[in-house]
């Protein structure tokens, strides 16, 4: 039997069964106990556990990458022989294995929140500098969690049938959540992002200076690219060149057209350099992953 394969589970077959929440709570508690037990493991025993778990987890993905998959296997057919069966088993196990990672991440989010609360409660209780901001943060956090859950419970369970996309069917909770999420959070996100425009402006102002040969080359390339981004300037400049050459496509002056120059810089200078960097980064990631997987690295994370 393929234990890891995706198949209809009790969860999917009984979406309305209230007992599932009991099981969820049980699993949650068991998880917390496991976390607690692992944190009490003596220091000397940690490395073998970390290295062992890392190896097992990595082994799955290495096999998934290397093991051949059955060719042209139809949905209504069973795989032939050991190689095909293992290949299909690895393929169908991906959601299960990825699910484990998601579950672990969810547990860790609790630790993240604990860190946040600890930092800000300490600030408030010790009345450290700017402690008022910490109060604001905690109030916002509590409000968002409370309203978010209330909104979710109403939409998914309590009055699921009554609430639609039409805003007239919304309750006060739905409206408040919408104001907090769509009205505030999203726009604050966008505001933070737009601040980058100013930073690009001031960074460019400082960085593009004719200090050395390299800096001059950098600035000239930046100017060509910036000018080429302005359609009106490019059209005007190219039009002038067309007038000079009589629109003869064989004339050498065509190479001075702004989009040609910028295209050359992009395709012949930038892209090859980026590809070379990508090769280096890829090799570095592979080496790092290999060292972690095989537990070859000492110090840092695997110590």
């Amino acid at each position: 039997m393929n234990l890891l394969a995706y198949q209809p589970t009790w969860w999917t077959l009984n979406p309305q069964d209230n007992g599932r929440y009991g099981v969820l709570v049980g699993v949650f508690i068991a998880g917390m106990v496991l976390f607690f037990a692992l944190s009490k493991v003596p220091h000397s025993a940690r490395r073998p556990i970390v290295v062992g778990v890392t190896f097992l987890a990595g082994l799955f993905w290495v096999l998934r990458y290397l093991w051949p998959e059955p060719i042209a296997l139809r949905e209504n057919e069973l795989p032939n022989g050991f190689v095909e069966k293992t290949g299909q088993w690895l393929q169908t196990s991906v959601p299960f294995v990825s699910g484990i990672a998601q579950v672990v991440t969810s547990f860790l989010l609790g630790l993240g929140m604990f860190s946040l609360l600890r930092v800000h409660f300490t600030k408030i209780t010790r009345k450290q500098k700017d402690w008022q901001f910490s109060v604001l943060l905690l109030v916002c956090m509590a409000l968002m969690i409370a309203v978010g859950y209330a909104d979710w419970l109403q939409r998914e369970f309590w009055i699921k049938e009554k609430i639609t996309d039409d805003t007239t069917t919304w309750t006060n909770v739905n409206v408040v959540f919408n104001i907090l999420f769509e009205g505030l959070l999203q726009n604050m996100d966008a505001a933070m992002f737009s601040i980058i425009a100013f930073y690009i402006f001031s960074a460019a102002y400082r960085a593009f200076r004719i200090r050395s040969m390299e800096a001059t080359l950098l600035m000239s390339s930046a100017l060509i690219v910036m000018l080429s981004l302005m359609g009106a300037v490019t059209s005007g400049w190219n039009g002038t060149i067309d007038n000079m050459t009589g629109s003869n496509p064989a004339n050498l002056l065509n190479n001075l057209k702004l989009n040609e120059l910028a295209g050359w810089l992009r395709n012949m200078v930038q892209v090859p350099a980026l590809q070379a960097l990508e090769f280096g980064v890829g090799l570095g990631t592979l080496a790092m992953a290999l060292r972690l997987w095989l537990g070859l690295e000492r110090g840092g994370v695997t110590e």
Partner: peptide
């Protein structure tokens, strides 16, 4: 167009 023109002007001014 406006932003890039301003940026080019700022770079020229800086230099």
């Amino acid at each position: 167009h406006i932003a890039l023109t301003l940026m080019i002007l700022a770079i020229a001014l800086g230099n």
